[in-house]
């Protein structure tokens, strides 16, 4: 069992653990942000470079520092490794640079984007980015296209994390989409106007960290923070049936997979659960989902809920937003997700 020290906190982890996983075991502020890594997908990560950390000491055996920042999601810990994340000013600086790179060609159309409120890039920019851009050229744009009955591809928003490609490759038979072209002209595309059509195709929407792949059945129906997430399950012959229902006014607006606090899907669900079971009566409701992500929602709307949010916020080190009086009905469980 190797011992690793991340930002002066020591932890013992199983063999083969990556620095990112070790940091998540510690939790809180030492966890580097990650956009392209997804714990349920093999060989994911390493592309976005937001999770880079500094390795001050390689291992007990070979104490030399690593010459360059390493992606924590793809670097395995060694016994005696010393890693710096938040406590290394050059890493904080480099990460701000990466966030800037990710945003220079992003349309920043959050006000009209369905992903807003549950967008990893939004959260990343909020925590690690700057409030202005130094980029004064035309941004790269693409046409929106429908890839399949339920999925809309808005390539302009894509940050090329490769998560949807890996999802299609690892949980479905016969991937029909991938990355074509090169450099900043690279785009996600279906193979010669193919459509993504299989029982698990909807999962590419859930793994997309930005609003590049959105659910056509949910587009422009509601901002996500006006919907209430409820955990539910059903007996499904195809998948685990463990889902999250997003309700508004007693109506189920969409069904997604459950995501953990890092925004990563816990278990993938099939299209039948996702698109065909939109009545609350189809499901066994377990109760309100705990949304404890350090997200833009968390910083505003969920800020004031009396539940566990305070503790989580202390851990993530987010500044407290303005205090809002708990109004009438605040203790109604329906209002405090």
């Amino acid at each position: 069992m190797p011992k690793v020290t991340i930002d002066d906190i020591e932890i013992e982890v199983p063999d083969g653990t990556t620095i990112l996983q070790a940091a998540r075991m510690i939790g809180g502020e030492v966890v580097p942000p990650a956009m392209c890594y997804h714990s349920k997908l093999k060989t994911s990560g390493g592309y976005c470079r937001t999770c880079i950390v500094k390795v001050e000491k390689g291992s007990e055996k070979d104490p030399r520092p690593m010459p360059k920042p390493v992606p924590s999601c793809r670097t395995t810990v060694m016994d005696g490794m010393v890693v710096r994340n938040k406590t290394a000013p050059d890493i904080v600086e480099a990460r701000a640079g990466i966030v800037e790179f990710l945003l220079i060609n992003h349309p920043l159309d959050c006000p009209v984007c369905d992903q807003a409120g549950e967008c990893d890039l939004q959260d990343l920019a909020y925590e690690h980015g700057k409030s202005h851009s130094r980029y004064d050229f035309q941004r790269r744009t693409f046409e929106k296209i429908d890839i399949g009955e339920h999925i809309k591809l808005h390539m302009t928003r894509c940050i090329l994390c490769y998560r949807c490609v890996k999802t299609a490759e690892q949980i479905t038979d016969g991937r029909v989409h991938g990355v074509i072209y090169r450099g900043d002209a690279a785009e996600i595309s279906t193979y010669i106007q193919n459509v993504i059509d299989n029982d698990f195709s909807g999962n590419v929407i859930d793994v997309c960290p930005v609003g590049a792949l959105t659910d056509r059945t949910f587009r422009f129906k509601s901002r996500v923070w006006f919907t209430k997430p409820v955990d539910a399950h059903r007996d499904c012959p195809k998948c685990s049936g463990q889902v999250r229902l997003w309700e508004k006014g007693g109506e189920v607006l969409r069904v997604t997979a459950r995501k953990d606090k890092y925004g990563e899907v816990e278990s993938f669900i099939c299209n039948e659960c996702r698109y065909d079971k939109k009545n609350a009566s189809d499901w066994v409701i377990e109760g309100p989902s705990k949304v404890d992500r350090h997200s833009v929602i968390g910083a505003n709307h969920y800020e004031n809920s009396v539940l566990s949010a305070t503790d989580d916020r202390q851990q993530t080190g987010l500044p407290h937003g303005k205090k809002v009086e708990l109004g009438e009905g605040a203790l109604n469980p329906n209002n405090i997700y």
């Binding site: 937001t50 990466i98 790179f101 940050i159 090329l160 090169r182 450099g183 900043d184 690279a186």
Partner: peptide
């Protein structure tokens, strides 16, 4: 270099084009 960047990782994908511009 902008033309030849593979587009996998963000600093190179976005940065090379920015420098060229």
């Amino acid at each position: 270099y902008h033309h030849e960047s593979c587009g996998q990782c963000s600093p190179c994908r976005e940065g090379t084009g920015w420098m060229e511009k």
